[in-house]
Each structure stands twice: as C-alpha cells, then as structure tokens.
Write a protein that binds this DNA or RNA. Structure first.
Lengths: 347, 347
DNA sequence: CGTTCCGCTGAAAGCGATTTCAACCGAAAT
DNA sequence: ATTTCGGTTGAAATCGCTTTCAGCGGAACG
C-alpha cells in the first residue's frame, strides 16, 4: 500500500506507464477499453500522481503561489484589525485549485526588505509555480512586478486598478463609489463628506473619482473641504472624522474610504453624540465582518474577493494548460451594494 | 540566466554536484575553502535548489500542508464573521517556514464529505509533505486523524485538548478560564454567568472546568442555572443571553464561551438597556478583532495562535530533519489576559 | 615501512513522472 | 496486393536533485 507509483498502476492494468499517464492527463488518444482498465487500477490502488515527479518530468508544476505581505512583527499582525481580505482570497483560490487538481502555496514577502527582488526570484525558481496571485499592496509593488516579469511567470493582480504587466481581476471601484454616492443623493443628502483612502492604492483614487462623478451627475457642487484625506487606518480615520464632524456646517452623510475608516467615523460620531443614521448617514467599502456586526450595520459595497481569486486561479490554470502565457486582460467582476441601516434620509 | 541548476553551480565552482549539494544542505564535511567557493557561485548565479527535484531524489519535500475546513458555500464563508484564527495561524506558520526554507501549502477539506478519507490520502500521496498542521475543527475529526496516521505523516493538532495521535500545540484553556473568572471574582462579582461553548470542541469543556475551579477556589457556590449552553454562534449566544439577562436575579457578570457569543451578549444587553460594564461585566475568549473594536472593548484571553503555528512548524521541520518521526507531546503555550473596559466592579 | 582508518570528494544510480520518438495496426488509397 | 496514413501504444531518455558507495590522500598505528 505504501508508495503507489505509476508503474504499479501500469502493471496492474497491463499497459505501459505512458498509457497510464495519458489517462491521468485526460489525453484523447486512448481507447475506451484501456482507459477503463487503467482507471479501475487507479481507483483500486488509490493512486495519486506525485506532484514533484510531474513537475520534474513535465512542463507544469500544478502549483500556484499567493504572495502575502509580511507585517513587521507578530504584534503588528495582531493589531491588523479584522480585515479578512486575504482569508477570502485564499478560500476562493483553494476552491478552484481543488477543482483543477492544483495546489495553493502561500509565501510571505516583505515589501520593505532590500532583498525583496531576490526573495521573489528565489521562491519562483525553487518552486516554479504555474502562476502567481498578487493582492494589495504587493500587487502594485514595482520590484515584485519586475521580478515576476523577468521570471516569465504568469500572474494575476487582484484588486488593483494600476495598469502594468500581468492580468488584472478586480471590482469596479469607481462605479461602486458612484453608486454608493447616488444612493445617498437619492435619500436626499446634499452635503456628503468623503474620507479618502491611502494614496498607495489606486483604488482609493478610483473611489474618489466615482464620488465626484455622482455628485456632478446629480448637479451638486463639489465642496473640496468635504474631502478629507484618510490613510485606511483607524487612527487616520479618527482624525479625519473629527475634522469633518466638529466643523460648522458638517455633512449629513459620510462616505468612508474603507471599513477601517468607517469604524473610526462611527467611533467619533458616538463620542460627539451624533446618532447614526438619525443625524449622520455612513457608507463604506469592503464589507468586512466588523461593519456587518456594528450597530447599526453599515451600508457597504461587497467586494467579491473570493470570486476574484477563483477567477484568478482559472486564468492561471488555463494559461498553464495552454502555452504558459497569460494575456494582460483586465477583468471586472460585479459587486453588490449592501444597503443597510446606517444610511437614511437626512434630518 | 534561465534555469540555473546545481550543475551550473558545480561547474562554476569547479567541484562536483555532490559538493554543492553538501553546501546547500549544510553538511559539516566540507572544507571551508570549498564551501566558500561554492557559496560564491551560488550567490553569483542566484541559484535556488528546485524543490521538486529535491523531493524526488531525497527523503524530504520541504512542504508543510495546512488543512483548511471547507465551508459549504461562498455564502457561508462570507457570513463567518471576523474570526481570523486561520489568518493568524497561517501567518505564524509562514514566518517559520520561511526561516527553515520550507513552504506552506493550504488544502481545503470538507469534513462532511463521504470522500474525506480519500481526499486526505490523495493530497498526502501526491504532495508527500513533511508535515501537516490541523486546526479546529478538523483537528478533532476521527476520519482525518485516521488517514493521517495511516499515511505516517507527522502532524500537529493546534488548539485541541483531545488526546490522540499526533503532537498537540495549544493554550491552556482551563487555566485561562480560571484566571478570567478570578479576575471577575476579585472585582467583587458573586453571580457570574457562563455561556458555554459548542460541545464539539473540548476547549469549551476545559473553559467550563476552569470557571468552576475558580469559583470553588474562591469559596463561592456554583449555581447551575447560571450555566447556559451556547453553541459558538451569534444566534445561540443571543438565546443564551436572553435567558440569563431577563431572569430574576440576573448575574452581574458573564463569561462568554467565545467571542461570537460575547458579541451576542452585548447585543442583547444593549437591547435590554443593560449598560456594560456599569450594570454587567463581560469577558470572553479568543480576542478576535471585533471584540477589541467593540464598545466597550472586551476583556479577553489572547490565544497565541500565530505562536502556536510557529511552534507547530518548528516541530514538524525538526522531525523531518531527524528521522521523520514526531512525538505525541502536548505543548502548552502561554496566553495573555487582556483586561479591558468591559469588566468592572458590580453595581 | 606497511596497514588501518578517517576525513573529504566525486561518480553513478535512482526517484516518478513527462516527453520524444519509434513501432505497430488496420483501413483507405493506389 | 501493396503502399500509405492516421490513430494507438510503448521504449527510452530526461528533468535536477539526493543517496549510495567508491576513491584517495595523509595521519596514526602496529
């Protein structure tokens, strides 16, 4: 029972190893009779092809690497509050890997390290994956992108609007922001604040654009003082919210650049005894668990993270099965507006 | 530059491939001079040993598999609120894998599937990892454990108190619950409710034991009606909290079986206009992001998940480097009490 | 001074798949 | 009846390492 190899299967089915290989790889030129005999042998023996040998002999590795960004210390990681983006990404990726007989490898990289290029190259040449999945923020790091391009590995950037090498899979941030803003306008809001996101992510710029678009389309003036820079952190959000909420003529609604920021806005609002949604409507992006559970639950855009990852895997596997080349296509996935209790008509 | 192999390094350093292999694997019997020459060649060529070839030739695969539990649908996954246990586990594991030159593979398994044993066996024989990491709830699944044992793969069960095959790495739930309860007792609480966890996890029983121990040690009577069964879900928590809080002679403090449950208790308390911590103290386990962000932030036990995973990897790598055998040891890691605003002396 | 042993190095044989290419067969074409 | 050809099958080389084992020189020993 130990160590069933292709040779054992071949012997049991009285065919050559090559024929077994053909059956395993679903090649068309095998007579039904032989195919059946081989399949029976495989099932009886519980044979599973050894991935290392497959990689060594053939051109595919059946491996997909997902690069994860390294937080400096465990302590940092701990305080990285409730963003389950990576979690969902991995889930979607694993689901599809399973279907394709692929395997998902998670590798840590440190964008701050001066060894970054080397590290990426090292991982790629020792693993030789059939594809790589990148997520924010590593999907926008020039060093990483350059190393990937040089290694000629197909890769998909998730959730990034930045043009560049590799395929992209993302949601349309701009139109999401637009729809969120339109929702607020429809409810009667005229003074809508916006706590912008970190400039490091192009998505924040897209969101800001969508916000402006919606206002213009509705014929509303754009008050630049209602746009306050945030940085995607709780602390940054608190500062921005204080600026917006303690000024005269404060907005009746706020669009937060991301969920973390939204929680900060809620925090400040509660401190200032501004009731949500009575005196202030609040909407945000990402739909992380914390904003679903908050009181009140927040209106958000649900980013289809798992679906994006699933598509990324599909693209990479298809490329590997074909010629190992991946087009630069930009795939936009549909998002969902989750209209919840945090948005209501202004007082 | 493409495809640097050990042969290229050997040629450049004017030694045999075997000597290069010795240097790469840190074998002691190489003269310093040769070692240096080889290392220089490696660095200049940017050589990284091919993991597939290493696995095929040798006895180790430099791979560690972490089994992840499959949620039935993406929808389920989405609603799995903010528990970043897996996230933290992976982070700790990746950190140590990196150090050891290992790689972390994430594989999905479905505990409900009737193909479970086959799936596990399939993954193991096609990947032949040097070790496997199990997490709740798969770490207590008999089918999985059996398949792992049969495959003779070293494995570590994280966060499980259940005796059985494989090594264990976990925190001491019982003493954590004891300390949490002691903390409440010290603050002056006499009627302390406990919403127990799901019976599926031995940890819940351990927590209950700790609670009882602390009360007994403090000379307090144990009122069985203050122990209400929960099931680790929000809904279950709501029901339990309603039972505890709407009865006459309600407790002045509640220990929740896990964070999800705690959030439910908060929810009910707010609805019943019971102020925390003024009228009710609340403490819980796991320290997930949502309870740090809640209002007030909750007193919890911080499970050292990342540290547990790091230790798991260390154990597995050490076993692989030695004889491929892993002892059944039970490793207890220190936890931290995070005393926060949700606990205060009773009214 | 010859033998033994030890420390270091290298040659060659796998590991388990895929790939390449040759061989075979019967049906269609000549 | 012979040649040809497309569709199947299998033999052997190959991938890049580790493992096993042999070789080799010099120190230690009898």
């Amino acid at each position: 029972m130990r160590n069933v190899t292709i040779v054992h299967v071949a012997e049991k089915a009285r065919v050559s190893v090559k024929t077994v290989s053909r059956v395993v790889n679903n090649e068309p030129t095998v007579t039904p009779e032989l195919r059946e005999r081989v399949q029976a042998a495989i099932d009886q023996l519980g044979y599973a092809p050894n991935i290392a040998a497959r990689r060594l002999g053939g051109s595919r590795s059946f491996l997909i690497v997902a690069f994860n960004d390294r937080k400096l210390t465990l302590e940092n990681w701990r305080s990285d509050r409730g963003n389950n983006w990576i979690d969902r990404m991995q889930y979607g990726a694993m689901l599809r890997c399973d279907v394709h007989g692929y395997h998902l490898l998670c590798e840590l990289i440190d964008l701050e390290s001066d060894q970054l290029a080397r590290r990426v190259q090292h991982v790629l040449s020792s693993l030789r994956p059939d594809g790589v999945i990148l997520t924010p923020p590593n999907c926008e790091d020039p060093t990483v992108l350059e190393a990937l391009k040089r290694a000629q590995v197909p890769f998909v950037r998730m959730g990034s609007a930045a043009a560049g090498p590799g395929a992209r899979v993302r949601m349309d941030d701009q139109s999401a922001a637009r729809q969120l803003t339109e929702h607020l306008v429809e409810q009667g809001h005229r003074r809508i604040g916006f706590v912008t996101g970190s400039k490091r992510f192009l998505a924040s710029r897209a969101r800001e654009d969508g916000y402006r678009q919606a206002l213009s389309a509705a014929g509303l003036p754009i008050d630049e003082t209602l746009l306050v820079p945030g940085d995607f952190t709780f602390e940054g959000g608190v500062a921005a919210a204080e600026a917006l909420l303690s000024r005269p003529g404060r907005p009746t609604a706020i669009l937060a650049g991301n969920d973390e920021t939204a929680l900060a806005v809620m925090h400040v609002a509660r401190r200032l005894e501004i009731v949500i949604p009575g005196a202030l409507s609040l909407a945000t992006f990402d739909d992380t668990p914390s904003v679903r559970l908050s009181l009140p639950p927040l209106t958000t855009v649900r980013q289809p993270v798992a679906e994006m990852a699933a598509q990324a895997v599909d693209l990479l596997v298809a490329a590997a099965a074909k010629d190992g080349k991946l087009s630069r296509a930009d795939h936009l996935l549909p998002f969902e507006l989750a209209l919840r209790a945090s948005t209501a008509p202004p007082p």
